[in-house]
């Protein structure tokens, strides 16, 4: 079974209450935005974290990608707010 590691950072992590999770890979053609819509149904914390997808950013295997990007055979997806370092 192909799996996908999802990592959460900053307020996304706080709302969901965990650093990440491993799920069954939802398929190479699944877009990140559609996966977010599915995750949103998993509970109140998820609903809060994913209430406004336009506030989210994503990275697949350590590279920034737009939310309408498909997962392909990525093994790691990270979901987080816009970055605020420096």
């Amino acid at each position: 079974m192909e799996t996908l590691n999802i990592l959460y950072f900053a307020w996304v992590r706080e709302a969901i209450g965990k650093d990440g999770e491993q799920i069954e890979h939802p398929g190479a053609e699944m877009r990140i935005i559609d996966l977010i819509a599915m995750l949103k149904e998993k509970g109140a914390g998820y609903a809060e974290a994913f209430a406004n997808p336009e506030k989210l950013r994503a990275a697949i295997d350590h590279a920034f990608v737009p939310l309408d990007c498909v997962l392909g055979h990525a093994s790691e997806l990270a979901l987080f707010p816009p970055v605020t370092g420096g």
Partner: peptide, 14 residues
């Protein structure tokens, strides 16, 4: 480097 670091390196401040 500092302009790109602020907007493209995955850091978050609380």
């Amino acid at each position: 480097l500092i302009d790109w670091l602020k907007t493209s390196a995955p850091f978050w401040k609380k």
